[in-house]
Structure formats: C-alpha cells, structure tokens
Nucleic acid binder design. Sequence first.
DNA 1: CTAATAATGTACCGGTCGATACATAAATAT
DNA 2: ATATTTATGTATCGACCGGTACATTATTAG
Lengths: 211, 211
Amino acid sequence: MAVMGRPRTFDRDKAVDEALHLFWQNGFEATSLNQLKAAMGGGISAPSFYAAFGSKEALFQECVQRYLETYAQVTECLWDTDMAPREAIETALRQSARMQYERGHPKGCMVGLGVMSAPSEEHASVSAALTRSRSRTRKGFIACVQRGIDRGELDPGIAPEALAAVFDAFLMGLSVLARDRVRLSVVEAGISQVMLAWDSAAPKHRGSPYA
Amino acid sequence: MAVMGRPRTFDRDKAVDEALHLFWQNGFEATSLNQLKAAMGGGISAPSFYAAFGSKEALFQECVQRYLETYAQVTECLWDTDMAPREAIETALRQSARMQYERGHPKGCMVGLGVMSAPSEEHASVSAALTRSRSRTRKGFIACVQRGIDRGELDPGIAPEALAAVFDAFLMGLSVLARDRVRLSVVEAGISQVMLAWDSAAPKHRGSPYA
DNA sequence: CTAATAATGTACCGGTCGATACATAAATAT
DNA sequence: ATATTTATGTATCGACCGGTACATTATTAG
C-alpha cells in the first residue's frame, strides 16, 4: 500500500544509481549538488533533493552502501572458505578487473579511488566506509594467505601480510590502470603473472637438501 | 643583480613547496586558494598570489613539475640501462616505497593519487602532466621486462606488458596502502614477494625434459 | 467532504570559490 | 631627483557552493 502524501515524481532508486555513478566518477567533493540534481530523472529541484536524501553527504553514504552491496561483492570470495585460497584470490582479482572495466559505469573501483575523497583528517567521516571496506578486503587477502600456509600450499616462513600486500596493492592499482585506459586484456594477463608470486611462495620440496 | 620593483616579502621557492604539499595531500580541486595563501610565508594576499603564480592551475602545474623533478625521480632507474632490469624494477619499487612513507610530506605518490584530480574529460588538462608521467613509468616497466627477455632472464614467451602491469599496478597501489597506514615494513616485505613474479617468469631450464 | 501528510516549485540564504581593480609602497634605472 | 617597475594592502567582483523558507499541489486517512 502506498504511503500518504504527494508522490515522488522521480525514481528514488534510480536516482541513487545515478548519484553513485557521479560520485564514482568524480569523488565526493568534486561532485556538485547541481550535477546530482540534474542527473536525477531529468532534473529535480533542491527541496526535492533534500526531502529525498537529507544532504549531500547522506546521499554519498547511501551510494557507498549500494556500491558495497553490489559492485564490491566481486571480492567477497576472499571470505569463502569453501574455495581454495589461491583460487579465491585469483577469482577476486579477475572479477574485480572485469567489473572495473565494464561499460555502463565509471572505470576503476570506487573503494580504491575514494582514498582521495577525504583529504584532511576532519572530513575522514566522509570516506570512513570506504576506508573500512579497504581494511576488510586487506584482511581477506591476509586470511587467504594464512589459509594457504595452514593448508601447506605456502611456505610457513613467509609473513602473511607481506604476500597479501602484493595482491592488495595490485588490486588498488588496477583502478589507476583502468582510468589510464590500459587494456583489460593486459590487466588480465597481469593477474596471471601476479599469481606466480603465490606459486613462488610454495614450501620447499620435501627432503630438499638445503632446506 | 636584483631586478627592478618592490621585492617580494615571501620566498617564492618555499611557497611552491608548501603548495606542493597541499596539492599532494588534498588534490587540485580540494585545495582552496585560501589554504594556499595561508600556507605561504605565514599568509599572503590574493594579489600577491596572482602576481607570483598567475592562477591556481598554473601553480599546480609548477608544483607537478617540481614533484616530477624531485620526488618522482625515485623511478628514473627504470631507464638506467646500466642497471640489470630486475634490479632496476626492484630499486624503483623500494625507493618509491621509502619516499612515499617519508616524514615531512604527505603519504603516497602524487602522480598515482592524482588520477582523481581530473574527473571529467574537460578538466583533463589539469592532470595531463600526471597522466603523462604514469604513462612514462608504465613504459619504463615494459622496457625493463623487454630487456629481461632480451638478456635471457625472462621467458621470451611472456607478454612484456603483462608482467610490467604487475609492477605498475603494485606501485600505483602503494599510495593507497600508504594512505591507509599499512606499515612500511609490510610494504617492503611485499616488494620482495612481488619480485618473485619476475623470478617465476624465468625461462625453462635448458634441456628440461618437459620443455 | 475535511484533515493530515508529503513532495513540489519559486525564490533565496550566507558562505566560499577563483580572480581582479585600484591605489600605494618599495625597489632599480637613468 | 625622477621615471619605471613590481609587489603590496584593501576592497570587491560574479559565480557557484550546500542548504532552506514558504506557499502550493497531490496523495491518503478518516
């Protein structure tokens, strides 16, 4: 049943998507109210905007939330313990790369690119959710490496955060490559190459004379 | 001999450095004239600013130029053909990582973080120099991998851009890790790990029974 | 019907943005 | 000493920033 009051003349859900695209493309500060209003259902007024979203920052948080629930799910496999850890990492990288290059939305990853959305410490609240997401993905890489060690696929002598940092930094860097129009095929071939860092961290052969 | 006219009351050279720090920290758009003016020699007026630098964008370009001539030199070893290509890449990564974590200036790499300084295609001129620098470093990585192949250190079957993309994306991602306060020691251990991707791309053993 | 609720359109708020006009002050050139 | 050159201080420009006041319109609740 519909609620009381005059009905909205634009699709709020679609409006959030359009706002998400603008924030994704330009960042929080560089996206203006006028841009946001103009992009929503062919243009809405300021009061309509504030009635629907409260404030620019509240809308941004809503967009981040939506991003995390949709596009950012590509890296959720890092937490899937049913998947072999090496496969989880490679899958996360490949799915993220494909997502970042998809047509129909800005290139790159909003979570990674958002590192510049909170310049000073004061405005840290703006991008706190993005920072938290990066931290979580970072822990996901570490957990996969730890699982690899526990399963005997990786040398127990390596530091989990070190190998995880390879995939973490590589993934964060993909956004820059995507924005710079490095071809997806190159990035995908790069993923195959970076996975060799995992393979090189395998334990020494049993009975190796120098182990 | 000094030039004619009333002398400047602030050190223009130091002012560029202070502006560089602000742009590095906040990006082009998020750095305001008031911030820049306030940071220069204890505060200067708007006319003094424009007399000295012309415009905000002109100052930004000057800051980028200075960054490229100083901090960004850490990756110049990629073009040093007297250095073994693997060593050149590892040196570039280690020097850049140390630079990005140095105290006394913002964390991360201005060239990498600047990818968000030009949201739309219209303002591309603002960050064109940064984009060109990334493109140049990218070519440097490719050139090193190509040299590795030519020297027989790498399997000639690999695509140079693919392995180069590993180091390229890794380097670009370091800025995010630095901003996220991932410890330098972790990043440095990560560099050792990512270099294993190079080692894994070595040619098959001569006379290998399965080659 | 009337009351209550909620979104809309018009017009506008104070603040900050980057940038400038204009007169004045401090140096050099002759 | 005077002219020239350049930077300074004060005061301000129009444009845009995020955000609102207020009356109006469209819907539901009773």
